[in-house]
Design a protein around this nucleic acid. Sequence first.
DNA 1: CCATCTTTTGAGAGTCACTCTCATTTCATG
DNA 2: CATGAAATGAGAGTGACTCTCAAAAGATGG
Lengths: 211, 211
Amino acid sequence: MTAARTTPAPAGGAELGAPLGLRERKKLKTRLAIRESTYRLIEEQGYDATTIEQIAEGAEVSPSTVFRYFPTKEDIVLTDEYDPLMEQLLRERPAGEPIIESMRHVLRDAVGRIQSGGEAEQRELVLRTRLMVESVPVRARLMESMSMTGRIVCGVIAERTGRGADDFEVRVLAMGMMGALLESIMYWAERGCVDDLLDLVERALDIFESR
Amino acid sequence: MTAARTTPAPAGGAELGAPLGLRERKKLKTRLAIRESTYRLIEEQGYDATTIEQIAEGAEVSPSTVFRYFPTKEDIVLTDEYDPLMEQLLRERPAGEPIIESMRHVLRDAVGRIQSGGEAEQRELVLRTRLMVESVPVRARLMESMSMTGRIVCGVIAERTGRGADDFEVRVLAMGMMGALLESIMYWAERGCVDDLLDLVERALDIFESR
DNA sequence: CCATCTTTTGAGAGTCACTCTCATTTCATG
DNA sequence: CATGAAATGAGAGTGACTCTCAAAAGATGG
């Protein structure tokens, strides 16, 4: 759902064959350490009160290093790797299927994956979503990445319909859907993340579909 | 279209009776001076290269004063007073009319107003829209204000349908529409603002309406 | 016109995210 | 183990934004 766009990414894609040298393993660990330090601090004292310096200290790296791994503070919280996954799942759907139907399946899959994943993953999702309601910059960044997700959806729609990804109708449709989706997440977050997210998302798609 | 939310607002609303003392007139002038200084500098050297200090200098005020009038740099460019106007126009539409139809009329009215307005107003619109494509923070701020506009639309829909403004369906619908609208503006901006904006907006609504 | 009260302003110091540069450390490779 | 490449840390610098405080300027009653 959120765009992955960081400098030292985990070696583009999921090359299984790569044995991953010491260097790469260390990078992964650092990246994780920064994230965890950030999550912990934010839960303790909130987003605004948490400085990069504290995050660096907690992760036992220098502030410079934090910025080498994440371009902005918001990105530490928001960057994830769902977009490529979503794109893949989306492309796997039958080409004839209406896009909304495809999205429904894909989202069901994705949300299900998180919910059945580790507890840590769920806490992360909740924290991130909470931040999105509480912090203006985080929300802004999320919206930005939503619009990137929208471009991906555009790509898929375009492929299926034979139209260009830059086609006006395609873009308007995709972003309309994104708006509806984002709002359903907001709604969920505002109510303390206690409702069934999957249910909300599906309802949002229903609403969008039938008008 | 964009939310007005600044500290020294032009005396809330349009109280015609107020004779406007010297103090108020000065504030208005300062506000305008800051805006104009900003627009000029941005056109000359771009958004990022323009600092608050330069803006202040150009407007012949201190940097502190700039922040007293506008909470952030983005707000200098984006703050406008369309939201209240839109809300008013929207409420003036017949209650039975479908919301999309109402929006169509309101937008037609609003866009028309700008196009038939002064040339300065049009240049402003174009500059702002261009910035939205070029600058990440500006775009973020615009999205934020779009979601505020969405809340207003929610309010109107709620009134008409008798549902709460916090009703899930209402919110999803409103934000979906906003997404579609925003994307049509992006589309316009990306193509150099040469197409007919009104036409695009209406098409966006059509698309949104018929699915 | 003056005294007083309130609002607006400017100046300055301070915080924090983020950028750039450069020397040092650390891993990879033959 | 020597050599080259990549990652790190340290430090200085920029710019948006906040806060505080004293000076300036408009509003007000006499």
